[in-house]
Write a protein that binds this DNA or RNA. Structure first.
Lengths: 232, 232
DNA sequence: TCTTCGATAGGACATATGTCCTCGATTCTA
DNA sequence: TAGAATCGAGGACATATGTCCTATCGAAGA
């Protein structure tokens, strides 16, 4: 973690994401910009939490580790996203581990200052409410989805949402294979089983396995299979 | 649903749960008290939502139904609890079905009024934040728990938490058998499999099956098995 | 170039869990 | 009270998923 001391930059990030209105003038001077390198841990499960972060650039990965050492990826996030909100409101230790997937920039504020300076500032409270309820809703969705559907359906759904995401640009239907282990965790299954299902998809002509990535061949069929449910 | 027109009663419920401070005087006149009979539906998944409710007496059950008609119980709730909060903030249709498990009393307010009259009232916003983050935290916990542990562990954990709950009083280690089907849904498995696991527990001497209920015999062992994780 | 190592896919097997169905006990009804 | 309707428990089987291990391949190094 490295603090970027550039008030100008903080401002421009706030502007870019239309966040100026949610912070009042009192707190502004205390907003800092931090940079995390790819792979760096931003928060560690179980540690005391002191900062509330707003993800303004890059991609992060959130996961939890059970007492038995099993790890479960909860989600990937891209801007704009608030991190450490639950901990801030509940005043508890860090719940999940957060890791930078790419080079990441976050705006951070100390809990104590934030509480002192904005606890009665409605726009901020409303913003927090909106963000958190949205999170809640999405999380809930994907979790029950996991619980109620076989891996097949989850994978189909996952593929579709990844395609949406990254493919807007160029790739048009490819999934990097390097992240397969992560993918397995994310949809709540083992790497082995994921492979099994991919194989199945291949022989059904839904996707094709290329060197290093997976190619979507039949988007229609995937959509049908996913039953309209999409991880979002 | 029956409205109880008794301003006095509303007040005493608010008082009992220390909720007076979160509502301002403007909104007070619009708080209504509603009664639901056992088994009655309070909210139905997919319908437009117009009210925000606060559960002040009784017990409710929250569940979701997938497109394929599968149902998954998300939780049981007792006072004090807010219902319809996500829908209120996000302005979306009802997410989950809510059903009265016992005779239930709830305080309800119309979204439109609430938004108009308290949207800038910090105590209310703070209250909502606290409630929602707490919900989020608990839900998250139990969901990842489900995903990461076999039914065996979940059942042990569930038994313990139920015992805590209801047994404080008299029963001291019994679980009514009537709700087994619900229990199965709650811990995310089938009735059949639940039975299988109970049977296993019996032969291991952890519990005993009596006519109509299940008797906890070895709390120690259950605690060990649950690995310290408890549904809360 | 040959060897070694790490990574990935897939085989074999064990387990966990779901579905369907039957059996016996209980309750309800005429 | 007999028969019908229910309900809960458990058997048999099918499927989904996990674990462990091995074969293969390409990259890195001697």
């Amino acid at each position: 973690m490295k603090e970027i001391k550039n008030r100008q930059l903080v401002q421009s990030y706030l502007q870019a994401h239309q966040l100026e209105s949610i912070f009042n003038d009192d707190i502004m001077p205390y907003l800092s910009l931090y940079h995390f390198e790819q792979g760096e841990l931003i928060l560690s499960q179980g540690e005391p939490s002191k900062y509330l972060y707003v993800l303004v650039q890059g991609k992060i990965k959130i996961y939890t580790t059970s007492a038995q050492g099993k790890t479960l990826i909860l989600s990937f996030k891209t801007p704009i996203e608030v991190i450490g909100d639950i901990e801030y409101v509940q005043e508890i230790d860090t719940i999940n581990t957060v890791e930078a997937v790419s080079s990441v920039y976050m705006i951070g504020v100390q809990h104590t200052l934030l509480k002192k300076l904005t606890n009665d500032y409605s726009p901020f409270l409303q913003f927090m409410l909106t963000i958190i309820t949205e999170k809640f809703y999405l999380k809930n969705n994907s979790m029950s989805f996991n619980l109620m559907h076989p891996v097949e359906v989850r994978l189909a759904s996952y593929l579709l949402s990844v395609i949406h995401d990254e493919n807007e640009s160029i790739l048009s239907g490819q999934l990097s294979t390097s992240s397969l282990a992560d993918t397995a965790n994310l949809i709540g299954t083992s790497y082995r089983h994921l492979n099994r299902v991919i194989r199945q998809f291949c022989s059904d002509g839904l996707v094709e396995r290329k060197k290093g990535f997976i190619l979507i061949k039949d988007r229609e069929a995937l959509t049908t299979l996913s039953g309209g449910n999409i991880y979002e």
